[in-house]
Amino acid sequence: MHELSLAGGILRLLEQTRERDPFERVIHLRLEAGALSGVEPSALRFALEAIAPGTCLEHATIDIEEPPATARCMACGQSVTIRSRLDPCPICGDFGLQATGGTELRVMELQVI
């Protein structure tokens, strides 16, 4: 379950942010897991809740947005949005899609006090 490693990475990012810009704790955390990020949002939420006690993330609410990924179709040349690597081009039906975005897991914003 790589979501636990990723949760650790998120917590490190929060701690680093707190060193630069001190706050007491995070009350709300907004994440973005692209459709091709390889991240299962429910597993990530479970992992974050598991490591939160005793950290600045304790009692925080967490939002994980899942924007669709973007790809370029090699057959018709259009930029399209896809939800999975198995999707065909929604315009021409070809499978020759080159993913151009939606592979990242990002910490977007925190609400802190």
Binding site: L6, G9, I10, R12, L13, T17, D21, F23, E24, I27, H28, E104, L105, R106, V107, M108, E109, L110, Q111, V112, I113
Partner: peptide, 25 residues
């Protein structure tokens, strides 16, 4: 409020925009 302090003109909770890739490190 949650911060137990009042700062005029400022909401107690504040937002920090990061937009940082978790795998960046």
């Amino acid at each position: 409020g949650e911060a137990r302090v009042s700062v005029p003109g400022m909401s107690q909770a504040r937002a920090i925009k990061l937009e940082t890739d978790v795998l960046g490190a």
